[in-house]
Amino acid sequence: MKLGILINEGPYQHQASDTALQYVKAAIKKGHEIYRVFFYNDGVNNATKLSSPPQDDRNITKEWSMLAKDHGIDLVVCVAAAQRRGILDKDEAKRNGKDADNLEEGFRISGLGQLVEAGIQSDRLITFGD
């Protein structure tokens, strides 16, 4: 089946992103297709490459990034939610006159329409949040 995932909470503060990671790994193992993972609300904070957790803790951003690399999963960050919270790719940084960008590899920034599209195209849309 085609599964769409929506993540509405940032990493570490809440278990949502961890649960989503475990769910996505299990779904891939079972042969399902992850159509898209969409990051909204504070969920956009999962995409910052500046995150530097202690050595003995999991690196949630890196885990998403590696999943995207290994399985070609489309990780999409909502542009409006990301701008509010300071998550920018090179283009967005330039457009907003900022001197730095922080989007982790494997993520891309796009509009809310990508979430609606995930709802339309996926067989199921599952939300993880607070």
Partner: peptide, 19 residues
């Protein structure tokens, strides 16, 4: 919390997709 506002934003986009 921001949920009410950001929910409303998705609602309007979804409607724009003729759903």
């Amino acid at each position: 919390t921001i949920y009410a506002l950001e929910s409303l934003e998705v609602v309007l986009i979804t409607a724009a997709f003729d759903q």
